[in-house]
Design a protein around this nucleic acid. Structure first.
Length: 279
DNA sequence: CACCATGTTCCTTG
DNA sequence: CCAAGGAACATGGT
């Protein structure tokens, strides 16, 4: 469930449930997810530590674990495509693809990930080349212009580069371009200033509205259920149909211009757009 | 069986 | 150097 809005909603769910909890056991059940730190490094780094905060950087979660004496270790968590995290009372059976399970002084933290593209490690290097946060009040349209200028890459592909702006993924890239009325195949460096401005507004709106929707959806984080998930799940599924204006809507009518929504492939990912109102 | 999937990295080719 | 395309990772849904 991974783009920035879903990660942020998850962060808001996790932080109050983890803050102050002590880690009494670390059970790594899928070793590939703790690379490059490794099982021993992770266990030694956080066991007997206490969660002090849960932050976020782009699509990464940052678990601040205090080890006493003022020492703090940052666990970097990434959901990949299919990762989920929740806190429960530890009584239910673990999901089939449980990857990392933390026994807490009260309750249990579970990270599961069927495809195992996610990460849970102590390596901060993965955060270093990340671009600005889109909603932190610091990122400006001029910053976006700087990220696009000189690039002949398609603007849709450019938006997926986490160094341009952190947290935009395949769904919200399509959504933002539709909202801005910009065709996804345009060369990034050839957008006019007014178009960059529209895109900047659209990125921020699309992301912040998704966070609000996720907050309203009263997520149910039981083991087999994830109310934040995009499709086909229980929980917020009633809202899902209205969430996206173009994503996964090939052949449907565009709500803005009445045209037909198209799908094309860019950088081996599906892009959805309306040729009628995206120029 | 075929094809698709919210992410990221690596490799090859032009 | 840049851009694009493909494969890889591993599993599940339709």
């Amino acid at each position: 469930m991974p783009e920035m809005p879903e990660v942020e909603v998850l962060r808001r769910y996790l932080e109050p449930r983890l803050k102050g909890r002590r880690i009494v056991g670390v059970d790594v059940r899928r070793q590939r997810l703790v690379r490059p730190t490794g099982v021993r490094g992770l266990v030694e780094g956080i066991v007997e530590g206490t969660f002090e905060a849960v932050g976020r950087r782009g699509k990464h979660l940052l678990f601040e674990v205090g080890k006493g004496g003022g020492e703090v270790r940052s666990v970097v968590g990434h959901l990949g495509m299919t990762g989920r995290m929740y806190v429960d009372d530890g009584l239910a059976a673990l999901p089939r693809h449980a990857a990392v399970v933390l026994a807490l002084d009260v309750g249990r933290f579970v990270f599961e990930d069927p495809r195992q593209f996610g990460r849970f490690h102590l390596d901060a290097a993965s955060l270093r080349e990340m671009g600005p946060e889109p909603l932190d009040g610091v990122w400006t349209a001029a910053d976006l212009a700087k990220g696009l200028e000189g690039s002949r890459q398609a603007v849709k592909v450019r938006l997926l580069d986490q160094g341009v702006v952190a947290g935009v993924g395949n769904i919200y890239a399509s959504e933002a371009l539709h909202r801005a009325g910009i065709s996804p195949g345009r060369a990034a460096g050839r957008l006019k200033a007014v178009e960059v401005e529209r895109l900047w507004v659209a990125v921020r709106e699309v992301l912040s509205e998704a966070i609000e929707l996720g907050q309203r959806a009263s997520p149910d984080f039981t083991a087999g259920n994830d109310g934040l998930f995009y499709f086909g799940s229980t929980g917020a599924s009633a809202d899902v149909g209205e969430r996206f204006r173009v994503y996964d809507r090939e052949g449907e009518v565009c709500g803005r211009c009445g045209g037909v929504i198209c799908r094309r492939v860019q950088a081996a990912r599906s892009t959805f757009f309306c040729p009628g109102c995206q120029k």
